Structure formats: C-alpha cells, structure tokens
Computed example of a mutant assay.
Amino acid sequence: MNCCDHNECCGHSNDRIGAEIGMLHNLLRRQMACMTEKTANAANVTGMQAMIVHHLIIHEKQGDIFQKDLENAFQMRRSTATGILQLMEQHGIIRREPVEHDGRLKRLVLTEQARAMDEYITERMQQMEQLLRQGITEDELKGWFAVCEKIRSNLEQYQCNMCREGQK
C-alpha cells in the first residue's frame, strides 16, 4: 500500500492551502462560538445562526430575502440551509412568510427576539474582525483578499466542471 507522506506529492503538510484553510476555519468557528456564547445560551443560537440574523438585518432594507439568497451568501448547500432555518424557526428567531406574487416562495422574516440580539451579535462580529486584522497591513489584506478570490474562482470553476461531468 502506497501511503502519501505529503513531502513528495504536495509539499510539507504545513504548505498545503486546503489544510491551512481548514485549520483557520476550525479556529474561527471555535472563536466565534466562544464570543457568541452568551447569545447562544440566552437565545439558543449557534454562531452560524447569529451570522444569518446579522445578514438578514443588514440586507432586509434591500427587499425580501429568501433561503436561496442565504445559500448564495454563505456558500452552503440547500439541505444545510434548510436545517439551519428550520431550527431558527423552531426557536422563534425567524418566520417564513409567503410572498404575494408566488405562494411557493417564502421570505425570511426576523422576529423581535432576533432583533433584540442583533446589537450584541454586531459587537461580537466587530470584535472578531478587529482580532483577525490585528497586526496585518492594508497591503497584506489586499493580497489576502486577492488570493481568496482566486481560490474561490478555482473552486467554483472546478465544481462547475464536476457538475457537467456528472450530467453526461
């Protein structure tokens, strides 16, 4: 059995982009969970649910928001979004209301409970952003965002190719 030691095929383990992004993701999720713990305990809200509440509050002025909008904004699968939104609905954080022009579409509406926790969520998200930017120059940030955009583009292109192959 040939086992990859990562030195010959893809460099040292700490030189792999995917591994580094995965580790950063885990650290970020743990830190967000810690920072939103009071909100989560008081309102039974996870870190992702808190980010969705914040997103809905910011974007509701632009018009109705639907599940598909969240799927696109957070790059999540339909089944994941459905599960999260069902829990938020059960916990009284959102309501789904039909729209007049198409009864099949359900817009997402925040409850007063969700609105009450937004100030706390906003403060924690600002603290997280400050923590993440600490010691990083504007030029480094520009480079970081440029690299992230290229990685996102690579992944989206690959995903589209995989979808096309699956349709053959």
Rank of each mutant, 00 (worst) to 15 (best):
E20T: 04
E100R: 15
Q67H: 00
R29K: 14
C160I: 08
L28E: 08
A81M: 10
K106Q: 09
M76A: 04
S153Y: 08
L24K: 11
V99P: 00
Q90C: 08
N7T: 14
T80W: 02
H101M: 10
H91L: 04
R16T: 05
N41I: 07
A50N: 06
N154E: 10
I21P: 03
A43G: 01
T39H: 02
C148E: 11
Q49W: 11
K168Q: 08
H101E: 13
A19P: 01
D118Q: 15
F74S: 01
N161D: 13
C3D: 00
E97H: 08
H55K: 10
I94K: 07
L110P: 04
C148M: 15
L131A: 07
M117D: 00
G22Y: 04
P98V: 10
G63L: 03
H59I: 07
R16H: 04
L24Y: 01
E129Y: 02
P98F: 08
Q67S: 14
L132T: 08
C34F: 15
G143C: 12
I121M: 06
E71D: 06
V99K: 04
V109E: 01
N7L: 14
I65L: 13
H101N: 08
Q126N: 01
Q75F: 12
K38V: 14
E156I: 11
H6S: 11
K38R: 13
M88S: 03
C160F: 11
G135Q: 09
T36S: 02
Q31W: 03
L28S: 12
I94V: 15
H54C: 01
L155T: 12
E37A: 12
N154S: 13
E140H: 10
G22N: 04
H101Q: 11
Q90W: 09
A73F: 03
A40N: 09
E123S: 01
K61C: 12
L27V: 02
G135H: 06
K68H: 09
S79T: 14
E20W: 04
N2T: 10
Q159F: 06
V99T: 14
Q157N: 09
C10Q: 12
N41D: 13
L87T: 10
A19K: 07
V109A: 01
M48E: 06
L28Y: 05
Q49V: 07
E149P: 00
Q62F: 07
M76Q: 03
R104M: 04
S13D: 01
A81D: 02
C148S: 13
G103L: 12
C163Y: 08
I17D: 03
M162P: 03
E100I: 15
E60K: 15
E129V: 15
R107K: 14
G22C: 05
E140M: 14
E112L: 13
G166I: 02
N72H: 12
G92N: 06
D15C: 01
L85G: 00
E129F: 05
